[in-house]
Every structure is written in C-alpha cells, then in structure tokens.
Design a protein around this nucleic acid. Sequence first.
DNA 1: TGCAGTAGCTTATTCAGCAAGTTACTCTCT
DNA 2: AGAGAGTAACTTGCTGAATAAGCTACTGCA
Lengths: 176, 176
Amino acid sequence: MAVQGEHTDSLFEPGRRSRLLQLLRTYTDTHVELTRHLARTLGIHANDAVAIAEILWAEATGDPLSPVRLSERIGLASGGTATLLNRLETAGFVVRSREDTDRRIVRLRLTPQARSRTEDFFLPTGEHLNNTLDGYDDATLEHMEHLLTEIVAVTAARNEQLRADLKPASSGRQGT
Amino acid sequence: MAVQGEHTDSLFEPGRRSRLLQLLRTYTDTHVELTRHLARTLGIHANDAVAIAEILWAEATGDPLSPVRLSERIGLASGGTATLLNRLETAGFVVRSREDTDRRIVRLRLTPQARSRTEDFFLPTGEHLNNTLDGYDDATLEHMEHLLTEIVAVTAARNEQLRADLKPASSGRQGT
DNA sequence: TGCAGTAGCTTATTCAGCAAGTTACTCTCT
DNA sequence: AGAGAGTAACTTGCTGAATAAGCTACTGCA
C-alpha cells in the first residue's frame, strides 16, 4: 500500500529529456540486435560476436585487449572468457600473442579473415551513418559529441560505483 | 590475398564522425554493463534483467509486451523466453495477464515490488542525466533528438534487412 | 631470495537456451 | 456452422556455455 509512488515517474515523464533518454535506450537495443546479426552471419554465438567487436575496435585504436580486459567488457568471468577465446581461436577468428614486455600478458588480435568479414558486415551501416552525419553542420556534431561524452561519463561513473560494491575488501590497500 | 584493403578503414578513420560513432558504441557498452549491475542487484541473470528493463519500459509507454515481442527484443527463441518468464514469475518479478480481446495474447507486467526496485536502481542515473541535459538549450536538444532518431532509423533498417535474410521464403512473396 | 599480487588457463558442475512438438485460440473460406 | 490455416504460448529432452575453484607462470617489491 505505497501511498507515494509518484517521484519515480520522473523517469517516464513526457518531455524532451525523457524522449532523448528513450532514444538512447532504443539505440542500445538496436545496436545489440545488430551484433546478434553479426553472430548469425559469422556462425558464432551472440557473446562471441560481442567479443569480436570489442577486440576489433580495441585493436583499431592501437591498444589490443587482453583476456582480463575483454572479460570486463563482455561481463564474463575469467574462465568463461578463456573458453570463449578457445572457441574463437579454434574457429580461426582470433589469435593470442604474447607481445608485451610483461610476459604474462596476452594480446588478442583478429585474424585477417575475421577482420575483413566483420568489417564487411559493419561497413554498409557505417557508410550509411556517415552519410547521415554529413547532413549536419560541424557545430551540431560537436555539440552532440560533447553531450554524448557527458552522458557516457555519467553512466560510467555509476557503473564504477556499482562495481565498487562488488569487491568488499580485498587487501588492506584502499585507495581513492 | 586481398590486395586492396583500405576502403574498410573508413570505419576507423580519425575525425569527428568516427568519434561520434565510437561514442555511441561506448554508450552501448556502458548501458549494457549498467543492466548487468541491475541483474546483480536484483539477484537475477543478465538476460533476465534485460527483459525486466524492456517490460518496464513497454509498460510505461502504455503498451505492455507479449512474450513474442519480448523474445524479439532480447533475442531469445520462444521456448527460452518461456523459461525466462517462468523464472521471473516464480521469483515474483513478473505477472502474466490475459487482458487482450484476443485470448491468445499474454501481457507482461512487473509486480509492484519489481517495478519499484528497478526504478530505484535507475533513478539516480536518470536524475543525473537529467541534470546534465539541463545544461543544454532547447534547440540543441532538439537537434540531438533529430540526429539520434535518424541514427536509430539507419541501424534499425539494417536490422530489418538482416532479419529478412533469416526467413528464406514463407509465402510466395520473394523480393529481389 | 622469498612472497604477495596478477594474468591466464584448466577442470568439474550446473543450468540457460534451443529445437521440436503440443495446446489453445482466431480468422477465413466454403 | 465447420474445416483448415495461421498464430500465441507453453512443455520437454538435450546440448554446451558459463561458473567457481584451483593451478601455473610471471612480475616486482622488500
């Protein structure tokens, strides 16, 4: 018998802000579905496709993922990530290379075939999106970039906070 | 031996457009992680949390999901969705109600407890985001809304196309 | 040189999800 | 009205993805 129950409506209040947030939500759904289609196209599991996309992007930015960092992004435990990587390596999508000075670290790279198939998959959408963005002037895009950056920061901060609840107290060290 | 292999670089070319697309990708990752935290908070599986968010949102827009439509959104087959819903119903998160004139159709609604727990989870982020959006004037937000709408449309169109490849030929109608 | 910390992996086990089949309901066509 | 096609939801048997726990290899501090 909760008498109150109106404050939470702010999430769904009509208005421009709420509409924007819903658009972001919808975009996420859409992007996730696109990744599922990638999985189907490559003949692999949904999570494997997520991993491939992450590996591809990280590699493109010049800082290839390690298994631990991949596991953080796709939300799998260490063992599950190892299984996933074995699967992808056996299927010829991924190679592991120890190229770091720290000999413990493994770097994940796509095979040329995997990269080209994945890029071919994303390319039409990418070009279509680029064309769409061409319809906007530079100032608008800059605003958009700024806004999105802030939005990501807010959400990421919340994630960080929630992640902190996970590890109660490992070592005595508890930094900032 | 593909001699060419430069056209695909357009996905990663430096520049504002590419940066925007990466931001969208990052946002998706962030939002997905947030949903995983929701799962942990509610003590349910990741996919279950995705389903709860979808059910909540659909209900809020006045058009509660049916199992089929839920399954399309979360990317599960009919049987898997039934299992998931049984799980959520048993755990007291979801109720199924036959309220449609078409007696086959089941509408999915969150229990009050589930709704309040989920809203409590999203509320801090939602308010934080609203504050962020308050820093932008109306015209800018309108531009954003327009741009995002287009982006979603492009991606959704691609999804539709890919989904069409799935069903080979049900009725005699076959396109190109 | 030992010891704590981290990266990556292996193994045993569980249970989520799929494919296929069943029931219930709706709509159309005769 | 009644047969038949189509759709919504659910059930069941089985596969294998992911987990938890434990192990090895490497790093770097004391």
